[in-house]
Protein backbone atom coordinates (compact mmCIF):
# COMPACT_ATOMS: atom_id res chain seq x y z
CA UNK A 1 0.00 0.00 0.00
CA UNK A 2 2.80 2.37 0.96
CA UNK A 3 4.61 1.52 -2.28
CA UNK A 4 1.49 2.03 -4.40
CA UNK A 5 0.79 5.45 -2.87
CA UNK A 6 4.46 6.43 -3.19
CA UNK A 7 4.49 5.33 -6.84
CA UNK A 8 1.47 7.52 -7.57
CA UNK A 9 2.94 10.54 -5.77
CA UNK A 10 6.30 10.21 -7.54
CA UNK A 11 4.49 9.73 -10.86
CA UNK A 12 2.56 12.95 -10.35
CA UNK A 13 5.58 15.03 -9.31
CA UNK A 14 7.81 13.48 -11.99
CA UNK A 15 5.20 13.92 -14.73
CA UNK A 16 4.61 17.54 -13.78
CA UNK A 17 8.18 18.76 -13.53
CA UNK A 18 10.35 16.49 -15.68
CA UNK A 19 11.01 17.14 -19.40
CA UNK A 20 9.40 14.75 -21.88
CA UNK A 21 12.62 12.81 -22.57
CA UNK A 22 12.53 11.67 -18.93
CA UNK A 23 8.90 10.52 -19.15
CA UNK A 24 8.93 7.90 -21.91
CA UNK A 25 6.13 5.87 -20.32
CA UNK A 26 3.90 8.83 -19.51
CA UNK A 27 2.36 10.70 -22.41
CA UNK A 28 -0.06 13.35 -21.18
CA UNK A 29 -0.51 15.96 -23.89
CA UNK A 30 -3.47 18.29 -23.59
CA UNK A 31 -4.34 19.88 -26.92
CA UNK A 32 -2.47 17.29 -28.92
CA UNK A 33 -2.48 16.75 -32.69
CA UNK A 34 -5.96 16.48 -34.22
CA UNK A 35 -7.83 18.96 -31.95
CA UNK A 36 -9.16 16.21 -29.68
CA UNK A 37 -9.37 18.60 -26.71
CA UNK A 38 -11.47 21.15 -28.64
CA UNK A 39 -13.66 18.42 -30.15
CA UNK A 40 -14.38 16.83 -26.78
CA UNK A 41 -15.32 20.27 -25.39
CA UNK A 42 -17.37 21.07 -28.48
CA UNK A 43 -19.39 17.84 -28.27
CA UNK A 44 -20.98 19.06 -25.03
CA UNK A 45 -22.85 21.73 -27.04
CA UNK A 46 -24.60 19.14 -29.20
CA UNK A 47 -27.71 17.04 -28.60
CA UNK A 48 -30.33 15.26 -30.68
CA UNK A 49 -28.30 15.29 -33.87
CA UNK A 50 -29.04 13.62 -37.19
CA UNK A 51 -25.68 11.98 -37.85
CA UNK A 52 -22.76 11.06 -35.62
CA UNK A 53 -19.45 10.20 -37.28
CA UNK A 54 -17.11 7.79 -35.53
CA UNK A 55 -13.59 6.61 -36.30
CA UNK A 56 -9.98 7.62 -36.73
CA UNK A 57 -8.35 10.68 -38.31
CA UNK A 58 -9.96 9.53 -41.57
CA UNK A 59 -13.22 10.54 -39.90
CA UNK A 60 -12.38 13.97 -38.53
CA UNK A 61 -10.51 14.80 -41.73
CA UNK A 62 -13.00 13.08 -44.04
CA UNK A 63 -16.53 14.16 -43.02
CA UNK A 64 -16.95 17.93 -43.32
CA UNK A 65 -19.84 19.04 -41.08
CA UNK A 66 -20.38 22.14 -43.22
CA UNK A 67 -21.24 20.05 -46.29
CA UNK A 68 -23.75 17.96 -44.34
CA UNK A 69 -25.18 21.04 -42.60
CA UNK A 70 -25.76 22.59 -46.05
CA UNK A 71 -27.99 19.57 -46.80
CA UNK A 72 -30.00 20.30 -43.66
CA UNK A 73 -28.33 17.66 -41.50
CA UNK A 74 -27.20 18.35 -37.95
CA UNK A 75 -24.00 16.35 -37.49
CA UNK A 76 -21.12 15.87 -35.10
CA UNK A 77 -17.74 14.36 -35.89
CA UNK A 78 -16.41 12.36 -32.94
CA UNK A 79 -13.35 10.96 -34.74
CA UNK A 80 -9.95 11.13 -33.08
CA UNK A 81 -6.40 10.24 -34.08
CA UNK A 82 -5.85 6.48 -34.49
CA UNK A 83 -9.18 5.80 -32.76
CA UNK A 84 -9.79 2.06 -32.48
CA UNK A 85 -13.04 0.38 -31.39
CA UNK A 86 -11.69 0.29 -27.80
CA UNK A 87 -11.81 4.10 -27.73
CA UNK A 88 -15.00 4.34 -29.77
CA UNK A 89 -16.95 2.38 -27.15
CA UNK A 90 -15.55 4.66 -24.41
CA UNK A 91 -16.65 7.79 -26.27
CA UNK A 92 -20.06 6.30 -27.09
CA UNK A 93 -20.73 5.47 -23.46
CA UNK A 94 -19.92 9.05 -22.52
CA UNK A 95 -21.75 10.96 -25.22
CA UNK A 96 -24.32 8.77 -26.98
CA UNK A 97 -27.28 9.48 -24.70
CA UNK A 98 -26.97 13.25 -25.02
CA UNK A 99 -26.15 13.27 -28.74
CA UNK A 100 -28.96 10.81 -29.45
CA UNK A 101 -28.17 10.57 -33.19
CA UNK A 102 -30.64 9.19 -35.70
CA UNK A 103 -27.81 7.65 -37.67
CA UNK A 104 -24.23 6.68 -36.89
CA UNK A 105 -21.68 6.61 -39.70
CA UNK A 106 -18.81 4.47 -38.51
CA UNK A 107 -15.54 4.69 -40.45
CA UNK A 108 -14.02 1.22 -40.59
CA UNK A 109 -10.36 1.54 -41.43
CA UNK A 110 -8.48 -1.80 -41.40
CA UNK A 111 -5.53 -0.49 -39.36
CA UNK A 112 -7.82 0.38 -36.46
CA UNK A 113 -8.75 -3.31 -36.19
CA UNK A 114 -5.09 -4.31 -36.09
CA UNK A 115 -3.67 -1.73 -33.67
CA UNK A 116 -3.24 -1.97 -29.91
CA UNK A 117 -5.11 1.30 -29.28
CA UNK A 118 -2.35 2.84 -27.13
CA UNK A 119 -1.91 6.07 -29.11
CA UNK A 120 -5.62 6.90 -29.16
CA UNK A 121 -6.11 5.93 -25.49
CA UNK A 122 -3.43 8.43 -24.49
CA UNK A 123 -5.07 11.08 -26.67
CA UNK A 124 -8.49 10.62 -25.09
CA UNK A 125 -7.20 10.23 -21.53
CA UNK A 126 -5.25 13.51 -21.86
CA UNK A 127 -8.03 15.51 -23.44
CA UNK A 128 -11.19 14.70 -21.56
CA UNK A 129 -12.10 14.29 -17.89
CA UNK A 130 -11.63 10.65 -17.00
CA UNK A 131 -14.21 8.32 -15.50
CA UNK A 132 -14.81 4.61 -14.99
CA UNK A 133 -14.96 4.12 -18.77
CA UNK A 134 -11.34 5.31 -18.99
CA UNK A 135 -10.36 2.61 -16.48
CA UNK A 136 -12.19 -0.04 -18.53
CA UNK A 137 -10.45 1.20 -21.67
CA UNK A 138 -7.04 1.11 -19.97
CA UNK A 139 -7.66 -2.45 -18.75
CA UNK A 140 -8.61 -3.53 -22.27
CA UNK A 141 -5.57 -1.88 -23.84
CA UNK A 142 -3.40 -3.20 -20.98
CA UNK A 143 -0.29 -1.15 -21.60
CA UNK A 144 2.04 0.38 -19.01
CA UNK A 145 2.10 3.76 -20.75
CA UNK A 146 -1.70 3.92 -20.66
CA UNK A 147 -1.82 2.98 -16.95
CA UNK A 148 0.79 5.61 -16.03
CA UNK A 149 -0.93 8.29 -18.10
CA UNK A 150 -4.36 7.44 -16.70
CA UNK A 151 -3.14 7.64 -13.07
CA UNK A 152 -1.46 10.95 -13.84
CA UNK A 153 -4.55 12.25 -15.69
CA UNK A 154 -6.84 11.38 -12.76
CA UNK A 155 -4.64 13.48 -10.49
CA UNK A 156 -4.51 16.29 -13.04
CA UNK A 157 -8.32 16.16 -13.25
CA UNK A 158 -8.42 16.71 -9.47
CA UNK A 159 -5.64 19.28 -9.09
CA UNK A 160 -5.66 20.84 -12.52
CA UNK A 161 -4.36 24.38 -12.42
CA UNK A 162 -4.80 24.74 -16.18
CA UNK A 163 -8.60 24.81 -16.08
CA UNK A 164 -8.57 27.77 -18.44
CA UNK A 165 -6.66 25.81 -21.09
CA UNK A 166 -7.80 26.84 -24.55
CA UNK A 167 -6.60 25.16 -27.71
CA UNK A 168 -6.07 27.33 -30.76
CA UNK A 169 -8.56 26.53 -33.54
CA UNK A 170 -5.84 27.00 -36.14
CA UNK A 171 -2.70 24.94 -35.57
CA UNK A 172 -0.15 24.87 -38.37
CA UNK A 173 -2.10 23.99 -41.50
CA UNK A 174 -4.99 22.46 -39.51
CA UNK A 175 -8.17 24.44 -39.02
CA UNK A 176 -10.83 23.17 -36.57
CA UNK A 177 -14.38 23.54 -37.82
CA UNK A 178 -17.22 23.59 -35.27
CA UNK A 179 -18.75 20.15 -35.18
CA UNK A 180 -15.49 18.22 -35.13
CA UNK A 181 -14.09 18.39 -38.67
CA UNK A 182 -10.47 19.47 -39.17
CA UNK A 183 -9.74 21.10 -42.51
CA UNK A 184 -6.22 20.79 -43.80
CA UNK A 185 -4.74 23.53 -45.93
CA UNK A 186 -4.97 22.30 -49.52
CA UNK A 187 -2.01 20.09 -50.36
CA UNK A 188 -1.34 17.26 -52.80
CA UNK A 189 0.18 13.83 -52.22
CA UNK A 190 3.08 12.63 -54.30
CA UNK A 191 2.71 8.88 -54.79
CA UNK A 192 5.25 6.61 -53.13
CA UNK A 193 5.61 2.85 -53.30
CA UNK A 194 4.26 1.22 -50.14
CA UNK A 195 4.93 -2.27 -48.83
CA UNK A 196 2.22 -4.91 -49.21
CA UNK A 197 0.17 -5.45 -46.09
CA UNK A 198 -2.23 -8.13 -44.86
CA UNK A 199 -5.23 -7.20 -42.71
CA UNK A 200 -5.21 -9.23 -39.51
CA UNK A 201 -8.05 -8.66 -37.07
CA UNK A 202 -7.20 -8.25 -33.40
CA UNK A 203 -9.81 -10.16 -31.39
CA UNK A 204 -9.96 -7.51 -28.62
CA UNK A 205 -10.67 -4.80 -31.20
CA UNK A 206 -13.25 -6.96 -32.92
CA UNK A 207 -15.01 -7.59 -29.56
CA UNK A 208 -15.04 -3.85 -28.84
CA UNK A 209 -16.39 -3.18 -32.35
CA UNK A 210 -19.23 -5.64 -31.75
CA UNK A 211 -19.91 -3.99 -28.39
CA UNK A 212 -20.23 -0.61 -30.15
CA UNK A 213 -22.71 -2.04 -32.62
CA UNK A 214 -24.71 -3.74 -29.85
CA UNK A 215 -24.86 -0.48 -27.87
CA UNK A 216 -26.14 1.39 -30.93
CA UNK A 217 -28.64 -1.33 -31.69
CA UNK A 218 -29.87 -1.27 -28.07
CA UNK A 219 -30.48 2.46 -28.46
CA UNK A 220 -32.32 1.81 -31.76
CA UNK A 221 -29.84 3.90 -33.74
CA UNK A 222 -29.25 3.07 -37.41
CA UNK A 223 -25.65 2.40 -38.37
CA UNK A 224 -23.80 2.35 -41.63
CA UNK A 225 -20.20 1.28 -41.93
CA UNK A 226 -18.03 3.30 -44.27
CA UNK A 227 -14.52 2.73 -45.52
CA UNK A 228 -13.38 6.33 -46.12
CA UNK A 229 -11.27 6.59 -49.30
CA UNK A 230 -7.52 6.40 -48.93
CA UNK A 231 -4.99 7.09 -51.69
CA UNK A 232 -5.41 4.35 -54.37
CA UNK A 233 -1.69 3.48 -54.13
CA UNK A 234 -2.20 2.88 -50.41
CA UNK A 235 -5.47 0.99 -50.88
CA UNK A 236 -3.93 -1.40 -53.39
CA UNK A 237 -1.24 -2.49 -50.91
CA UNK A 238 -3.74 -4.55 -48.87
CA UNK A 239 -3.60 -8.18 -49.92
CA UNK A 240 -6.97 -9.30 -48.50
CA UNK A 241 -9.34 -6.38 -48.86
CA UNK A 242 -12.14 -8.67 -50.12
CA UNK A 243 -11.98 -10.61 -46.85
CA UNK A 244 -12.20 -7.33 -44.92
CA UNK A 245 -15.18 -6.21 -47.01
CA UNK A 246 -17.01 -9.46 -46.39
CA UNK A 247 -16.46 -9.27 -42.60
CA UNK A 248 -17.80 -5.69 -42.57
CA UNK A 249 -20.78 -6.48 -44.82
CA UNK A 250 -21.70 -9.31 -42.49
CA UNK A 251 -22.10 -6.81 -39.65
CA UNK A 252 -24.13 -3.94 -41.11
CA UNK A 253 -24.89 -1.95 -44.24
CA UNK A 254 -21.37 -1.28 -45.52
CA UNK A 255 -19.98 1.03 -48.19
CA UNK A 256 -16.40 0.83 -49.33
CA UNK A 257 -15.87 4.24 -50.94
CA UNK A 258 -12.52 3.17 -52.33
CA UNK A 259 -14.59 1.13 -54.76
CA UNK A 260 -17.42 3.63 -55.22
CA UNK A 261 -15.37 6.68 -56.18
CA UNK A 262 -12.61 7.08 -58.69
CA UNK A 263 -10.05 9.26 -56.94
CA UNK A 264 -6.48 10.13 -57.72
CA UNK A 265 -3.46 10.06 -55.38
CA UNK A 266 -2.17 13.49 -56.31
CA UNK A 267 -5.47 15.31 -56.88
CA UNK A 268 -7.62 14.20 -53.96
CA UNK A 269 -5.22 13.34 -51.13
CA UNK A 270 -2.60 15.20 -49.14
CA UNK A 271 -0.93 12.02 -47.83
CA UNK A 272 -1.46 8.26 -48.39
CA UNK A 273 -4.21 8.16 -45.77
CA UNK A 274 -6.12 11.41 -45.90
CA UNK A 275 -8.32 13.19 -48.41
CA UNK A 276 -7.55 16.81 -49.20
CA UNK A 277 -10.45 19.27 -49.31
CA UNK A 278 -11.11 18.49 -53.00
CA UNK A 279 -11.43 14.80 -52.11
CA UNK A 280 -13.54 15.54 -49.04
CA UNK A 281 -16.10 17.45 -51.15
CA UNK A 282 -16.40 14.64 -53.71
CA UNK A 283 -16.64 11.96 -51.02
CA UNK A 284 -19.16 13.83 -48.84
CA UNK A 285 -21.43 14.70 -51.76
CA UNK A 286 -21.41 11.09 -52.92
CA UNK A 287 -22.23 9.93 -49.39
CA UNK A 288 -25.13 12.41 -49.11
CA UNK A 289 -26.40 11.16 -52.46
CA UNK A 290 -26.37 7.58 -51.15
CA UNK A 291 -28.01 8.60 -47.87
CA UNK A 292 -30.80 10.26 -49.87
CA UNK A 293 -31.19 7.22 -52.12
CA UNK A 294 -31.30 4.84 -49.19
CA UNK A 295 -33.46 7.24 -47.14
CA UNK A 296 -31.04 7.04 -44.24
CA UNK A 297 -30.99 10.70 -43.42
CA UNK A 298 -34.43 11.24 -41.95
Amino acid sequence: MFSAVTYIIILFIWGTFMPSYLTPNLNYVKGSYGHTYTRLQDVKDYENIDILFLGSSHTYRGFDNRIFNASGLKTFNLGSSAQTPLQTITLLKRHLTRLSPKLVIYDVYPNTFMGDGVESSLDIISNEKNDLNSVKMALSVNHLKVYNTLIYAFLRDIFDWRKNFKESLVKGDDNYVKGGFVEKELAYYKTKTLLRKEIKFDSTQLDAFNECLRLLEKNKISVILVYVPIAPSNYSRYTNIREFDSVMSAHMKYFNFNEKLILNDSLHFYDPDHLNQNGVKLFNNKLIEILNEEKFNR
Binding site: S3, I10, L22, P24, N25, L144
Partner: peptide
Protein backbone atom coordinates in the same frame (compact mmCIF):
# COMPACT_ATOMS: atom_id res chain seq x y z
CA UNK B 1 9.17 2.29 -4.55
CA UNK B 2 11.40 4.72 -6.42
CA UNK B 3 13.21 1.83 -8.11
CA UNK B 4 9.86 0.28 -9.06
CA UNK B 5 8.82 3.70 -10.38
CA UNK B 6 11.97 3.97 -12.51
CA UNK B 7 11.17 0.58 -14.00
CA UNK B 8 7.57 1.65 -14.64
CA UNK B 9 8.68 4.90 -16.23
CA UNK B 10 11.58 3.71 -18.33
Amino acid sequence: SFIVFLIGMF
